[in-house]
Simulated assay, not measured.
Amino acid sequence: MSDKTFKALIVEESEPKKFTRRIGERKISDLPAGDLLIRVHYSSLNYKDALSATGNKAVTRKFPHTPGIDAAGEVVECTCGRYQPGDQVLVTGYDLGMDTPGGFGEYIRIPCEWAVKLPDGLSLRESMIIGTAGFTAGLCVWKLDRAGVEPDAGDVLVTGASGGVGSIAVSILAKQGYRVVAVTGKPNAGDYLRNLGAAEVIGREAVLEGAERPMLKERWAGVVDVAGGDLLAAAIKATRYGGAVTCCGLVGSPDLNINVFPFILRGVSLLGVDSVQCPTQPRLAVWEKLAGLWKPEHLEETVTECGLEGLEEKIQQILKGAVRGRTLVRLLDA
């Protein structure tokens, strides 16, 4: 088995700071040590994958490398005793696709604890339409729920709503009865977001209006923010008394220029969301919800699909901010 070859996207540093990408062959013996060998059926394309594929050393330090922070497939070998050959599992987070060869290869080898047994109610394909983006959205909703933000509390704002995390957050929240206000910078995304369940679609300028003031009129019972920066600061300033804001991204900016007034005068909670090192119990709890009560009703409407050969075009699109929803990567027939 160790001499078996498989296809993978291979990123190489041909000379200092110059990176190339190609579809090539690797051997299973090239994979790192680990308890679990998985035949990958599906992966998905995330912004972090595009950064890794273009040689961003903040994401990936060791080359040659195969990106892909998501993977779902079938167990081939397991030495930890937790899984049997043929078991279906999914993997998101940890070091997969960063410095550990990831889901853009037909096989991965990982520690057992990185894997989650595929929950009842999800197919391998569906699990990767959800992927890290959907899991992150699920963690945001889970934290809002635990903070007491209930559907009758008022509007919930979702920034970056046409992206991977935002799209699935809109769908989950709407399915649970929340009135969702979706923020997007894409003028043609309105119908798409309303179809996912958004009650209202607004532009960024509607959130940022008056944001130079220390406090804004109370508007949001809760917020799912993937943008960071000025949008996050404005959303916090307009969150209602006792409301909660989840923060899971920095596409706008990693900086947060805000005073303490919303926290000490309105009791607003700012909740950080990390999907990479998320502990096992909340990880399992959120995946069970995503396979059941929270399963988005419009998964197929949020996704486009490609094989390994189509990844180059999709990588360029996501770097330009031109991808809407999720990009599924099919490996079973690659």
Rank of each mutant, 00 (worst) to 15 (best):
A133G: 06
I172D: 11
E312W: 00
D99E: 12
E301G: 13
D87F: 06
L308Q: 01
L124M: 02
Y94Q: 10
W287R: 03
T184V: 12
A8Q: 13
S269A: 14
L270G: 06
G307T: 14
G121P: 08
W142Q: 13
D333F: 01
G148A: 10
G160I: 09
T136C: 05
K57E: 14
G243K: 07
T304R: 11
C278G: 03
G55T: 11
K117E: 13
K57L: 14
R324Y: 05
Y192F: 15
D87V: 07
T79H: 11
S167W: 07
T20S: 15
S171F: 01
A58I: 09
S127T: 01
T280A: 12
G121K: 00
K314N: 05
G222C: 01
S2V: 11
L9N: 04
G243M: 06
A199H: 11
N46G: 02
S52A: 15
H298K: 15
R219Y: 08
G68E: 00
D70L: 08
R213C: 08
E15I: 08
A198L: 10
V156W: 06
A33G: 09
R326H: 01
A322L: 14
V251A: 15
L319P: 06
L37A: 02
P119E: 07
E288L: 06
T66V: 14
A189G: 10
G105C: 03
T5C: 01
G228C: 12
P151Y: 04
G203T: 14
I23Q: 02
D225W: 10
A161R: 02
Y107K: 01
G272W: 04
G307A: 10
G73M: 02
K237W: 09
I129L: 02
D152H: 12
E313I: 00
A53P: 08
D70R: 09
R61Q: 14
Q317H: 05
K17E: 15
T5Y: 04
K295E: 03
E77Y: 00
L284S: 00
C278S: 13
W114I: 13
E209I: 05
R240I: 05
N56L: 04
K17F: 15
F263Q: 10
T20K: 15
Y83Q: 04
S123V: 00
N259G: 15
P151F: 02
L319N: 08
D3T: 14
S162D: 10
A206Y: 00
G267L: 08
K62Y: 11
R146D: 09
P187E: 13
L196R: 06
L299G: 09
C78V: 07
F263S: 06
L232P: 00
L299A: 13
I130D: 04
Q316L: 11
Y42I: 00
T20Y: 08
L157P: 03
V170S: 13
W114A: 04
T136A: 02
S275P: 02
G93W: 06
E305M: 01
I110D: 05
A153Q: 09
I264E: 01
L118E: 07
L37R: 08
V11P: 11
A8M: 09
A182L: 10
A147C: 00
L299V: 12
S14M: 10
Q281H: 04
